[in-house]
Amino acid sequence: SEEEIREAFRVFDKDGNGYISAADLRHVMTNLGEKLTDEEVDEMIREADIDGDGQVNYEDFVQMMTA
């Protein structure tokens, strides 16, 4: 549901600035027990970053979650 997606976005957007940065993503993945290299984190950001601004905004996140 849209509310679940919004809630998930809030979990990833640690600093609440409306964007998921590589640092935000790394933090959440580490908490989930996933040890990722910087390259892996950057690749995840690139794949999710639809508009190419280097971070994942809510619209990018929705597209990723509903793809």
Results as ranks from 00 to 15, higher is better:
S1E: 05
S1P: 06
S1D: 06
E2Q: 11
E2W: 15
E3P: 04
E3M: 10
E4K: 14
E4A: 12
E4V: 10
I5R: 03
I5N: 01
I5C: 04
I5A: 03
I5G: 00
R6E: 02
R6V: 04
R6G: 01
R6F: 05
E7F: 06
A8P: 01
A8V: 04
A8M: 11
F9C: 06
F9H: 00
F9P: 00
F9R: 00
F9I: 02
R10N: 04
R10G: 03
R10D: 02
R10W: 03
V11T: 08
V11F: 10
V11C: 08
V11M: 12
F12P: 00
F12D: 00
D13Q: 01
D13L: 02
D13E: 02
K14L: 13
D15V: 07
D15R: 05
D15Q: 11
G16R: 07
N17Q: 06
N17W: 06
N17C: 05
N17V: 05
G18P: 00
Y19W: 11
Y19H: 04
Y19K: 13
Y19M: 11
Y19G: 01
I20N: 00
I20G: 00
I20T: 01
S21Y: 06
S21F: 07
A22M: 13
A22C: 08
A23E: 11
A23W: 04
A23R: 12
A23H: 11
A23D: 13
D24K: 04
D24W: 05
D24V: 05
L25T: 02
L25A: 13
R26K: 10
R26M: 05
H27T: 13
H27C: 08
V28I: 09
V28R: 00
V28D: 00
V28T: 03
V28N: 00
M29W: 04
M29I: 12
M29G: 00
M29T: 02
T30K: 15
N31M: 15
N31F: 15
N31L: 15
N31Q: 13
L32V: 05
L32Y: 12
E34L: 15
K35F: 11
K35T: 09
K35E: 08
L36W: 15
D38A: 12
D38L: 11
E39V: 08
E39A: 12
E40H: 07
E40S: 06
E40K: 11
E40F: 09
V41F: 14
V41P: 01
V41M: 13
D42H: 07
D42Y: 10
E43M: 14
E43Y: 15
M44N: 01
M44Y: 06
M44C: 08
I45P: 00
I45W: 06
I45M: 13
I45L: 12
R46K: 13
E47V: 15
E47Y: 15
A48T: 06
A48S: 08
A48M: 12
A48Q: 06
D49F: 09
D49Y: 11
I50H: 11
I50P: 10
I50L: 11
I50A: 10
D51L: 08
D51A: 12
D51N: 14
G52S: 11
D53K: 13
G54D: 06
G54Y: 05
G54N: 06
G54E: 05
Q55T: 06
Q55K: 13
V56H: 02
V56T: 02
V56C: 03
N57Q: 11
N57R: 15
Y58P: 00
Y58V: 13
E59N: 10
E59H: 08
D60R: 15
D60M: 15
D60N: 14
D60W: 15
F61Q: 00
F61T: 01
F61L: 10
F61N: 00
V62P: 01
Q63H: 13
Q63S: 09
Q63V: 08
Q63L: 11
Q63K: 14
M64S: 05
M64R: 15
M64P: 01
M65C: 04
M65G: 01
T66R: 12
T66V: 12
T66N: 07
T66D: 03
T66Y: 06
T66I: 13
A67Y: 03
A67F: 02
A67T: 14
A67C: 11
